[in-house]
């Protein structure tokens, strides 16, 4: 089991390397054929990694005997899986393979974190047996994956805009989407993410009523951190709708939002005590 997980981690590492190479060769005009080869390899590596990760997760669930996503390291692996899935769906719909160079490294980092912490043994707390926990976790993970896609579009926007303003003609510029596409798609995924996060949080807030032992605590660091994340994205949607803020500012906000997600999901779990701490 552990061996399969290690292979998955290495595959994600290879995928990330090829995606980064693809982007690096994008700067060189004499490397057109190398670049298109890198693009192909990176894409098929993504599919392979995704397949192996899917296999791993299914085997893991069978071994555990339940949908093992409530443990922190498991949920992080599941997030990496969801990021890859969302990326593949985006490629299918828009053919924007370049996005992979921005989101696949993130997926790799999550897989790596998951692998490093999978050793820490934990007992499944009884509170997590309730049926409402699963949709709560899945919805929030889906929202995180949407935010990470939006983060990728934000980065692509910023690079493309910089290239247009600098008036430099590199090939990198050819593999990035037009500004309005990066901007629109970024905002669509933020909108989607906010909806998923809102429902996920609402589902979670009902949990204490079902579980008498679970105290509802506003001061729970994870709750506060999630609210901050939620606020950043809601502000993003509002200023876009009412003040027409788009482009660079929107891109910066999507990066800020991504950092908030990281704090909520990784930072809080590793440092602070919380009822949401999975172990």
């Amino acid at each position: 089991m552990n061996f399969l997980f290690l292979i998955t981690v290495l595959l994600y590492l290879a995928t990330t390397i090829f995606h980064v190479l693809y982007l690096t060769f994008g700067e060189r005009s004499d490397a057109v054929s190398i670049r298109s080869r890198m693009e192909m390899i990176a894409f098929w590596m993504t599919i392979l990694s995704f397949g192996i990760l899917t296999l791993f997760i299914i085997l893991w669930w069978i071994k555990q005997g339940y949908f093992a996503i409530t443990k922190w390291s498991d949920s992080i692996a599941f997030l990496a899986w969801t990021i890859t899935l969302v990326y593949l769906i985006i490629v299918r719909l828009t053919k924007l393979r370049t996005l992979g160079s921005f989101v696949m490294p993130v997926a790799f980092i999550f897989i790596l974190i998951s692998y490093s912490f999978s050793e820490t043994t934990s007992h499944r707390a009884d509170i997590f047996t309730t049926n409402w926990v699963i949709p709560h976790v899945i919805l929030i993970i889906l929202s995180y994956a949407s935010f990470i896609a939006a983060f990728g579009f934000g980065l692509m926007y910023l690079i493309a805009e910089k290239k247009i303003r600098e008036k430099t003609q590199t090939l990198l510029y050819n593999i990035l989407p037009p500004l309005d596409v990066a901007d629109e798609l970024g905002s669509i995924f933020i909108f989607l993410g906010v909806i998923l996060l809102t429902i996920g949080v609402l589902v979670g807030s009902f949990l204490p009523t079902y579980l008498k032992d679970l105290p509802w605590n506003w001061y729970d660091p994870k709750v506060i951190s999630t609210l901050v994340t939620w606020l950043i994205y809601v502000v993003h949607i509002c200023i876009r709708q009412f003040w027409g803020w788009r482009g660079r500012k929107a891109a910066f906000l999507s990066i800020l939002g991504f950092l908030a997600v990281l704090c909520t999901y990784v930072g809080v779990d590793l440092t602070l005590d919380s009822i949401h701490e999975f172990q």
Binding site: A160, I164, Y173, P177, P178, L179, D180, V181
Partner: peptide, 8 residues
């Protein structure tokens, strides 16, 4: 071509 880099 430049216009197409800004507008889809």
């Amino acid at each position: 071509e430049l216009a197409k880099k800004i507008f889809n």
